[in-house]
Design a protein around this nucleic acid. Structure first.
Length: 431
RNA sequence: CGGGGAGUAGCGCAGCCUGGUAGCGCACCUGGUUUGGGACCAGGGGGUCGAAGGUUCGAAUCCUUUCUCCCCGACCA
């Protein structure tokens, strides 16, 4: 993508409305525009980041055997009345009426709908287990939306639902998702900490929340330092769940199973939550299957959420500096920026274009900055939008036979010989 | 929902106390000079001051109502 053809409205001063760093940076980098409280438009750059994150979530769901589908944003109130949550959900639920006066709502979650879909097709234990997910916009009319996309009213969430014949089988599904979650967050370059959690309004008796470490996080976490050294190849959920981890108001110094020297304290942001809630919804919404004896039993269910749009903010909270965003490679809107400092100079142009077409043909998501503007603006824009790998091409360097290579994450630059650029960059990207 | 704050040019702000018909920086447009970290000079365009009502000869400024947004708290993906 050529920078001049791409819509990235970066701004110097973030609106005074923005308070936390990720919100400020998302506005400064031209990723989002607020539409009303807690509701945002995703501009091209923001959407690219959102899509990359979404794709990693999707791949790990698919790897774990979940099936993607898509349920509507607008639901009929009927099912919610049946489950008893239509009244319980309170003012957080956005209720609307269609033209014929039917009670509708903008879905805040999908337990009711998915259970209804499931029960209308599945009648035998032979068809279990099943695990279905979708990545869809939700709406919760929060009392107080804040922190940009971290706590919006409208937000993109991956939610999935597992259906099993027994509690034991359901725990198996639960652990599969547990593992998938850890892998998902590790792939994004984050450090996930899993904590046993209250089950809240969703109900049930087993639940974990997943926080990622970020200095600016809202919660304070106390956990065994082993949790920071996870090997995605040998993840054992049962083992992992045995490690100590607690948020500050649940942490009890006198009753903490981990040795003092192994206890770490860090700030975290919640990005995922999983629940096993047994037969709560299957009983109310008639999701029964016949077991081997022909007896009808309610299916055991679990639900699993990842805040996809929140992750965009959380990733920035975890990866930024005074210049802007520092995207991990796996989720960066652009993997590589080619910054042509002198678009008027023929040598700079020729060399930049050569690299640009080379990396594009190698399927590297490349931003070619060929704008006619001051050098400072180019360099600071590319740092702001956080492209992890940048090559900076100027007249002076070219005549010395080199270009500048910048690692945004480490904030380190070095000169590379012109003839080695392609190889070095490809190696860096694939490392 | 309790407490606090803010709406003036695209963005950041001043002006309001003490009424006299709106200003600064950035951005934008034109011309020129620049060119390895948000460049410089000159010229230029852009605002019914959130909305409604009231007081007044006269309201961004004073009064009333209302809408929106933000922050702290309680609550949550």
């Amino acid at each position: 993508m050529k920078y001049s053809e791409f819509f990235i409205p970066t701004v110097k001063d973030a609106p005074s409305d923005a308070e936390i760093i990720s919100h400020k940076l998302m506005i400064k980098a031209g990723m989002i525009k607020q539409s009303s409280a807690g509701i945002y438009s995703w501009l091209p750059l923001g959407l690219k980041a959102l899509r990359k994150i979404e794709q990693i979530v999707r791949e790990e769901q698919d790897n774990a055997g979940a099936n993607e589908m898509l349920m509507p944003t607008i639901q009929s109130a009927d099912l919610w009345i049946k489950s008893g949550r239509y009244d319980d959900y309170g003012k957080e639920m956005l209720r609307i009426k269609d033209r014929s006066g039917r009670e509708m709502l903008f879905g805040p979650t999908n337990e009711e709908l998915i259970t209804d879909i499931f029960q209308s097709y599945v009648t035998s234990y032979k068809e279990l287990p099943k695990n279905l997910y979708h990545i869809q916009w939700k709406f919760r009319d929060e009392v107080r939306p804040r922190f940009g996309v971290m706590r919006g009213r409208e937000f993109l969430m991956k939610d999935n639902y597992s259906f099993d014949i027994s509690e034991e089988e359901a725990k198996n599904s639960y652990n599969k998702m547990f593992k998938a979650y850890i892998k998902t967050f590790l792939r994004m370059g984050l450090t996930p900490i899993s904590l046993r959690a209250e089950t809240g309004p969703i109900g049930g008796n087993l639940s974990h929340e997943f926080q990622i470490l970020a200095n600016t996080g809202e919660s304070t976490l106390y956990y065994d330092k082993e949790l920071e050294r996870l090997n995605p190849e040998k993840l054992d959920p049962d083992n992992l769940q045995s490690y100590y981890a607690a948020v500050d108001d649940q942490h009890d110094e006198n009753n903490c199973s981990v040795k003092k020297e192994d206890l770490k304290i860090s700030k975290g942001i919640e990005v995922g939550h999983i629940f096993y809630f047994g037969t709560k919804y299957s009983e109310k919404l008639n999701a029964y299957v016949q077991d081997q004896n022909g007896k009808k039993i309610p299916v055991h269910m679990g639900s699993y959420g990842i805040g996809v749009s929140r992750l965009v903010g959380a990733l920035i909270e975890a990866n930024h500096d005074e210049k802007g965003i520092k995207w991990p490679k796996s989720v960066a809107p652009f993997t590589l920026s080619i910054v042509n400092l002198m678009p008027d100079d023929q040598n700079c142009n020729t060399k930049s274009l050569e690299y640009y077409s080379y990396f594009m043909s190698n399927n590297i998501d490349t931003l070619y900055d060929e704008r006619i503007c001051s050098i400072g603006k180019k360099l600071s824009d590319n740092d702001l939008i956080g492209t992890p790998i940048q090559i900076i091409i100027g007249k002076r360097d070219l005549s010395a036979g080199v270009v500048e290579f910048k690692d945004r994450m480490l904030n380190k630059s070095k000169k590379i010989k012109i003839e080695e650029v392609k190889k070095v960059i490809l190696e860096k990207i694939n490392s």
